[in-house]
Design a protein around this nucleic acid. Structure first.
Lengths: 217, 217
DNA sequence: CGCCTCCTGCCTATATTTTAACAATCATTC
DNA sequence: GAATGATTGTTAAAATATAGGCAGGAGGCG
């Protein structure tokens, strides 16, 4: 699987989108598609779609197109959506609870096994079969349970410290919602969801649009 | 302000990060910095940082560096963080409520004015001074109040429809949390936060790491 | 069967983004 | 007040990402 090593992040970011649209086609009962059709749906150029897919092998048939279900399965395999993943959430505040309640992951087999928090009022509560446990028990828990992905939803002040603790306990994949960049060793992958930065970008474009509108009036 | 028109999105995405780190420097009482220092903090190359900033003008002093507070204010101005923004949230489920409760926006003046939902159990509740109102009252509300940014936290099945309604009522900036791409006119800016796609990317890298680890053993 | 249309996979060209290099400039030191 | 070291702004080069173009294969149709 050496070919995976050199795939650009931009390609990986697009794959979930293809996957989603292929799912929609399946739901509509359409079982054949083409890069042109996917282009219309996703907004990416047909050429780019073909090239993206060809990074992983020729899933299509020349002169014909792609089999929707087959292509979807192949992308699932590439992303690893054909496996099960156990998740814990550290920090059971607003965001942590929202993630635990989020049903949008249904497309793959992600299971939130437990949440952790310091707040005694939260400890003992359950969210969709997942218990909120005391943060002090985190390390013991990770020793016993094999966890794939940890979600950090703590305040930023403790996020680095929590991340280091997680890594010490063998975690290699972190989904970080704290507005801070984690300094992590090479063999840990961090996926950031920085809501501020997203909102600030939006703010920039909002203002730019307003400036243009005023100019044209 | 024509120069803003051609700034690449990649640059805009980095500005909030500079802004955040400059805030941290201020908090530490440091009032002078350099592209090299910012590079160490942010992980971007010093060259790139200088080039990014010079898109908007020379904020530094040759041979000396940048004044932390001044640079931070300039970036704030570029992003528009020196203004106030009124926000509504459509969909007061888990994510909607979490956003309403989110305090991470404190760096700028964002005010969540109201939430909207169809669920009678939620209508009438308040979250941090913002009331959850009936979705049926959305259009009336938007006629009376001048809202800058709308957040979509509805199920994906209605997100497109909600977005169109918002645009009809004069909204031009949408922060979309529904796992669907909105088809919008040119003069509307949509910033997507697609949690699935983010998690799927993480899953890909998690698996790739595991493959590499197994190979090296 | 032959022709036409459509579409992939691949190769090439263009555009964009990032990195590198360097002259100009400033504060500091001796 | 001249030399030094640090650092910017800017230009050029390299790397990367995207788009375009085309040969060849597949299916459909008369």
């Amino acid at each position: 699987m050496d070919k995976h090593d050199r795939i650009s992040p931009a390609v990986i970011r697009r794959l979930p989108k293809y996957y989603r649209y292929l799912g929609e086609l399946t739901k509509m009962g359409i079982n054949k598609t083409s890069s042109r059709e996917l282009s219309e749906m996703t907004g990416f150029s047909a050429s780019q779609i073909r090239q993206d897919l060809n990074n992983f092998g020729g899933f299509g048939q020349q002169g014909f197109g792609y089999d929707v279900e087959n292509l979807r399965n192949e992308i699932a395999k590439i992303l690893g959506l054909d496996n099960k993943y156990k998740i814990i959430i550290v920090g059971a505040g607003n965001i942590g609870q929202a993630i635990a309640n989020y049903t949008g992951f249904y497309e793959a087999d992600y299971e939130v096994v437990a949440l952790f928090d310091k707040n005694p009022k939260l400890i003992g509560m359950s969210i969709r079969n997942a218990m909120i446990m005391d943060s002090d028990d985190l390390e013991d828990f990770l020793e016993k349970e094999k966890i794939d992905i940890a979600v950090i939803c703590t305040p930023k002040s403790v996020s680095q410290q929590v991340a280091e603790q997680l890594v010490r306990c063998g975690i290699h994949a972190i989904w970080n919602f704290a507005p801070k960049d984690l300094k992590m060793p090479e063999n840990v992958h961090v996926e950031n969801v920085h809501l501020n930065e997203s909102l600030f970008s939006l703010t920039y474009y909002y203002n730019r649009m307003n400036r243009e509108k005023n100019k044209n009036e």
